[in-house]
Simulated assay, not measured.
Amino acid sequence: MNRETGSLLFNMSKVGTFRLGGTLIGTNAFRLMEGELGLTLPRDGVENTGDIDIAQFERLSLVLEDEVQPSLAETFTALKFDPVEALDTNSVWRWRQAKSGTLVEFLTPSFEENEGIKALPALGVKARALHHLNYLIADPIPAAALYREGVLVQIPRPERFAIHKLIVTELRRDGATSDKSYKDRQQAKWLIENMAEDRPMDVWEAYQDARSRGPKWRDRIARSLDRIPSLQQVLEDCGG
């Protein structure tokens, strides 16, 4: 983990971001799955993207009678992050550090047809609402980031992370054949193939859970698997 990412996670943890339900997602979460899996991640697909994505359930944020102290806005200002202005100046959900280019984004599951901007009171920020995110961040697990004395965060379960990647790769704005989509599929493939060896039921249950959520979910997973034909059989074998 580079210094910029470690410093940011350390300071976010110190004010209570992860204690209050914030979940680190994206490639930085993938990089922290080594400890959970007892494996060394491949070099391909784990390059630092410069993005740090934090997700939280809006409903959880509303019912918690607690909040980060001091505010994340103060924390970001101290670390020389500036808000990335949105069309609505009251709906800022991203901050960027000019020196490093690091971008922090806050996200939350969308349970409505449209994906908009929601408030996360416990974290004191706004967040972009996205479909399928509720599946990813359900039942997260703890993970330790190696920076200073260590930073305790929480990340998605690796089996859910993998299946979610198969879904979102088909939804990327830059297309399902882009470099980012390719990286999504490679991360999913690596996780599924390795977990199939000693945790096949975890993979199978996550796969079946996603498929049970409707025809659109099944279609997106199927289209991803068409691009990785060998993975379909691995998934079927996980179910015995």
Rank of each mutant, 00 (worst) to 15 (best):
I54D: 03
R199Y: 02
D198S: 15
G38N: 11
K99H: 09
L152C: 06
A188Q: 04
G21C: 03
M33A: 07
V153W: 05
L24S: 05
T102H: 03
P83G: 13
K118H: 13
T17S: 09
G239Y: 05
P142M: 06
N114V: 11
E47P: 01
S230K: 15
L24K: 00
L107D: 03
S71M: 04
I155C: 08
D202E: 14
G116Y: 09
D226L: 13
L87A: 14
P83E: 10
K14H: 03
D237V: 09
E197M: 06
Q97D: 11
A122M: 07
Q208R: 13
D184R: 06
K118W: 10
D237A: 12
S7Y: 06
E112F: 08
A144F: 00
Y147N: 05
A222Q: 15
R218V: 14
V104F: 03
P109I: 06
S178E: 08
T177L: 12
M201N: 11
V104S: 02
L39I: 10
M33T: 08
L32E: 08
R220Q: 15
T75Q: 05
T77L: 13
K180S: 02
G175F: 04
R148N: 11
L8T: 11
T169I: 01
D88S: 09
P229R: 13
R94H: 11
N48G: 03
L133N: 06
R3G: 00
Q97H: 14
R94K: 15
L60K: 10
